[in-house]
């Protein structure tokens, strides 16, 4: 009678990894990974904000945009060779992007294991749909907006940095490239949709960053959501304005009083040469 029946019990959902030396062990834990995600997110957020502000030069005109682009290449030129600083920043951004994506991917995988039934984005699914009380659209769609932003990034690079998508693309003439690209209504819609996703991602990401970094100060606690919302809103307005302005004809070669973009530059150089 007294046979012992094994009692089924909860098992760990992971095998605990062997501790790596500091600081690598930080990345072995989910909390550490969230910290890495927050720090890399902060770097990327800084980029997005700077990028958006820099792009406002579009409203000044092609020469100013070109000047701005040249300034970026000239960063730190008094100390190190030209474009090195820019490449340094690019490498930092690529690194931040890689760890941001990897931590997000691996943490989602961890949650998928912890959930008995999960959907494609690894969120848990109850048989009756869960009635969320606090989780908002932005927080629940992080694992959708993230990949959308990733795809958008490649599209954006291919479109305006590498010029793979258009025969009219001209190296060194960002203003014209933007006007040509976003002048296409399809492309403009892609930009609009992607930037909405980006803003949603930033709205939750910025708030989440405060939590993950453990920035918790009674003086700012009540403002964390507002800071996140404000940031996301500014970025959204700024970034959406470009495709809309192009579509509305506010940014257009016709608006230029002088010859625009690289043609103007070449002309200018030609004049100099003539002298």
């Amino acid at each position: 009678m007294a046979q012992t029946m094994p009692r089924p019990g909860p098992n760990p959902v992971r095998k605990r990894p062997k501790q790596l030396p500091f600081p690598l062990n930080v990345y072995q834990s989910a909390v550490g990974r969230k910290w890495v995600m927050a720090v890399s997110g902060l770097v990327l957020l800084g980029f997005v904000v700077t990028h958006m502000i820099g792009n406002l030069h579009l409203y000044e005109g092609p020469l100013e945009v070109r000047e701005y682009a040249e300034t970026l290449r000239d960063l730190g030129v008094h100390v190190i060779p030209r474009t090195w600083m820019l490449w340094g920043i690019r490498i930092l951004l690529i690194a931040a992007f890689v760890v941001h994506v990897h931590s997000a991917y691996s943490l989602a995988a961890m949650s998928r294991k912890a959930n008995p039934s999960s959907s494609l984005d690894s969120n848990k699914r109850y048989a009756s749909s869960q009635d969320y009380a606090a989780a908002n659209y932005a927080s629940r769609t992080m694992r959708w907006t993230g990949p959308i932003v990733l795809l958008y990034l490649f599209f954006h690079l291919a479109d305006l940095t590498w010029g793979w998508l258009s025969d009219d693309w001209t190296r060194g003439d960002p203003y014209n490239n933007v006007v040509i690209s976003m002048g296409n209504i399809g492309v403009a819609i892609i930009y609009i949709v992607a930037n909405v996703a980006l803003a949603l991602h930033i709205y939750h990401g910025a708030w989440s960053m405060f939590q993950s970094l453990g920035v918790n100060n009674p003086k700012i606690n009540n403002y964390r959501r507002h800071i996140a919302g404000g940031l996301a809103g500014l970025i959204l307005i700024g970034n959406l304005s470009f495709p809309i302005a192009v579509q509305a004809g506010l940014i257009d070669q016709d608006n230029c009083e002088a010859p625009c973009g690289i043609t103007a530059e070449l002309e200018h150089e030609g004049e100099e040469a003539a002298q």
Partner: peptide, 9 residues
């Protein structure tokens, strides 16, 4: 054992 019903000493 209230889960498995196992009675033992």
């Amino acid at each position: 054992d209230l889960v498995t019903g196992d009675v033992r000493s």
